[in-house]
């Protein structure tokens, strides 16, 4: 799923400083699972904004709304009345959701309330890690299901580099695993270590022609 982190309170306060009626719009899909922009986080941010403004003796009305998926026009349309009642919107969805909102309500400033960080998974409660770089040319069949493009600090296809620490950690961060050690161990378990000796040519950086478009195959 897409992982995001809420922006610092100070930054959000700055974004909406000129407005007195603001809608905080959440998304119940990815950003809800990573505790950044679901219904619960919408409620928290709304309360924080009200408190902050009242401490400054500055008037504000904060509306709240959350849709199932903010990256779908039909779902965003469900909250059009609330948007109409606000001067500005803070979207707690990923960048895709923010843009869908902004496109549907072109007369309204839509501000991002989170920083979209990566495609990943929960490692444990409250901790998410990056897994996929959406390169458009999946390589995982050759690497035991470990992506070196995002999980190796240098994105090496023919790793590891000389910087693997003892214990299989990365030179840039002793807390992070060396992706190539993970790959080695996984392939070893599967009896496919011969893949470690293969040479892989440079990747096609245009596998996804930016901006990306995917057309469904006709049935």
């Amino acid at each position: 799923m897409i992982i995001a982190e809420r922006k610092p309170m100070e930054e959000i306060k700055q974004l909406i400083a000129p407005y007195k009626k603001v809608l905080v719009a959440g998304c119940e899909t990815c950003v809800a699972v990573c505790w950044a922009g679901g219904e619960k986080e919408v409620g928290i941010l709304a309360s924080q904004l009200r408190l902050a403004r009242s401490a400054e003796r500055s008037e504000i009305s904060v509306l709240e709304a959350t849709v199932e998926r903010q990256c779908e026009r039909e779902m965003v349309a469900e909250i059009k009345d609330k948007v109409a009642g606000a001067e500005a919107v803070i979207s707690l969805a990923c960048g895709s959701g923010v843009q869908t909102m902004a496109e549907m309500f072109e007369d309204k400033p839509v501000f991002p309330g989170v920083n979209t960080t990566f495609i990943g998974m929960p490692e444990k409660e409250g901790l998410w890690v990056e897994m996929c770089g959406a390169c458009g040319d999946c390589f995982l069949d050759r690497t035991g299901g470990v992506c070196p493009i995002v999980r190796c600090a240098k994105g090496l296809l023919n790793g590891p580099c000389g910087g693997t620490r003892k214990g299989g950690k990365c030179e840039i961060d002793p807390e992070k695993d060396c992706a190539w050690v993970l790959i080695y161990r996984r392939l070893e378990k599967q009896g496919r270590l011969d893949l470690m000796r293969k040479y892989y040519p440079p990747k096609n950086a245009r596998a996804v022609k930016r901006p990306g478009k995917v057309q469904a195959a006709k049935a």
């Binding site: 600090a153 240098k154 994105g155 090496l156 296809l157 023919n158 790793g159 580099c161 910087g163 030179e171 840039i172 040479y199 040519p201 440079p202 950086a205």
Partner: peptide
């Protein structure tokens, strides 16, 4: 060379390239 990681240096906010790795560069 693949190159020393940017995080170690004096411009740690720089975008790393790594279009190739060192083996691909040698080739």
């Amino acid at each position: 060379l693949s190159g020393d990681p940017i995080y170690f240096g004096n411009h740690p906010k720089t975008k790393p390239v790594f279009d190739l790795d060192s083996l691909q560069l040698i080739r």
